[in-house]
Every structure is written in C-alpha cells, then in structure tokens.
Amino acid sequence: MRILPTILLLSTLGPALAQPVVIGHAGLQPLDRKTLERIYTGRIVEIGGVRVTPVNLPQGNELREAFLRHYLSQDENKYTGYWTVRRYVGKGTPPPELPSSAEVVEFVSKTEGAIGYVESVEVPEGVQILLRSP
C-alpha cells in the first residue's frame, strides 16, 4: 500500500535525474575519474598507445550537464570557459558534439578509441563500459 504514495511522490519530482555512464570503443580499458577528466579537458590524447577521441552531447543537454557534474565536477559555464581559453591560447578545440545519444553510440561503436556517455539504462551491446558513477 506504500507503493502508490511513493509513485505519486516520485511523479511530482519532475523528469528523472540523468545518470550518465561512460562508454568506449571495444578494446578500451576501464578508466578512473581523473583520467576521464584529463581526456575531456584535452590533457590526455592517448591511452596505452591508442589515440582517444572523446565526444560530447550538445550544450544544454541534460545528460551532458549530468556528465560534467558527476565525472568532471564542473558545470557548463566552467567547462565552456576552460575550452574557450584553451582554444584561444592555441592548444586545441573541445571534443566534437554529436546531436543525440544514438549518434554517440554509433560513433563509439565504429570508431577506434572513441569515448562518449549515455544514459545508464541505454547502454547497448558492442560498446565497453569504461566508468560508471556510483
């Protein structure tokens, strides 16, 4: 009988909180949070001799914001500001943005060294889970 009040309570909370899971091309080894942060901030470009290619979802995407918050301990402003500085000191450009999780999955599954993130409930076969937020 407690199930109905719980459901009613949850339904008033709005959209479910995004839970990103970091995925990578088959063959990539699991990562720790620090390494992932350095990949997404351009300070690491290869792991174990494999060139890595991180991809992002578009700015404003709820899953992207959750990814930045959970794994990089940053918000969009700070992340965008970091890459703006890095671009204009001539040290690189931010990871490419793909418009949807489906395209992230397709890119990661087909591209050696690719790393991305998807909703925890959407992890398909054919990609490696590299890191999962507790």
Partner: peptide
C-alpha cells in the same frame, strides 16, 4: 608548434585579445 605563434609570457598573454577569457 611551428609558424607564427603567441608565446607563453604572462598568464593571459596568449589570450589577451579575447576579453571573455
């Protein structure tokens, strides 16, 4: 890097033209 480039002098020298940074 090779070419015409901005060199690391002070903290903001390389991006001094980009006021938002």
């Amino acid at each position: 890097r090779v070419g015409k480039l901005r060199v690391p002098l002070m903290f903001y020298s390389a991006n001094s033209d980009v006021g938002i940074t």
